[in-house]
Design a protein around this nucleic acid. Sequence first.
DNA 1: TAGATTGTTAATCGATTAACAATC
DNA 2: TAGATTGTTAATCGATTAACAATC
Lengths: 206, 206
Amino acid sequence: MNTNRIPDIIIGRLPVYLRALQQLSEKGILTTSSQELGEIIGISAAQIRKDISQFGEFGKQGTGYSVPFLIERLRDILKVDRVWEVVIVGMGDIGHALARYNGFTNRGFRISMVFDNDPQKIGEKVGEYEVLDTAKLAEKVKQNRIKIAMLTVPAASAQEIADQLVRAGIKAILNYAPTSLNVPGNVRVQYIDPATHLQRMTYYLD
Amino acid sequence: MNTNRIPDIIIGRLPVYLRALQQLSEKGILTTSSQELGEIIGISAAQIRKDISQFGEFGKQGTGYSVPFLIERLRDILKVDRVWEVVIVGMGDIGHALARYNGFTNRGFRISMVFDNDPQKIGEKVGEYEVLDTAKLAEKVKQNRIKIAMLTVPAASAQEIADQLVRAGIKAILNYAPTSLNVPGNVRVQYIDPATHLQRMTYYLD
DNA sequence: TAGATTGTTAATCGATTAACAATC
DNA sequence: TAGATTGTTAATCGATTAACAATC
């Protein structure tokens, strides 16, 4: 086992491994191998073994990995063996879709509160949530010690809201606004921008 | 200028450069430098210069890059100097949000058709689109020579629909279903799964 | 001109792959 | 046991950074 600092690129693959393992588990499969996992995910078996071995010896020669055990280990490593409260800021179509999305269950997250600054929307119900005023964002985030936010506001206000979130103690932002955010080094950001993702593929088309 | 095969990791950064440049352009800024761009995006100036120089000498010593010119070059390189027709398969909340999203305009994409297999939804209007029957998916995609699809169906049916799309000639899939897809080597896939993106950040939280 | 910034080289750093002994 | 598959090493491959001559 290697106990050094783990490269972020490896951390980035672990959730994909976990997702594949949970799908195997749902099918009742109890054992898998780096080769099988690699075929499902589309990466090499050697890489999977190398990645996993950064954290311990979780497999058995000859038989491979126990699916439930490896799930347990990955959930622990990724700290999703608990439930993180998440806020959504921006109740447009995307925020709306996220608030009603049931894909967070069993993956370590729960939507805690949702915000918008549109007086028309404040007080309305979206899924099981009442839309709160963005003016109360910082207060509520601090009060509830929330660490994770999904940002679904227009690009023009994304940085300003991000600043507020950071000041309120948020440490991880999933940014759906099509703009880069400037945050301190101890805050993580992940970007989801469909147009950017699509533009990454058109290069390869004729 | 280097005319060798360009690494995918560089291609992946170009849309981010393009987005930042377009934001500068909207502010009326006509010139920028690798340093300024790097500060906006959060990567090193050296990397930006190196990436851009793969495609030609687009800057000027002493003054930097012309914003409109670099935008033009990147749009050309990424093949988003045209408009790609895109289909959406799956008219749940996410498909719905994408169908009404106006962020594709000026970025090289236009939603062409939207599909669902739910008889309740077929024929309904979502934004400006009438929901078509997924049974007609292959036919319509072939007929219109569409190359790009956004997949917003449940994980359980994603692979099956992806197979249909590939057989119908789709070459790029933006997959919102929380599952890995198996596609031939000449088909590109990008993954958007909020839970996976969030799990990539929790590792770093306390 | 003087200052600024590119494009590029070489050095460094990091990631992936292939191979195989260990062992279940 | 024989077959399968891990964990790990060493080699290869690729990406990033630092530095600077060229030049606008």
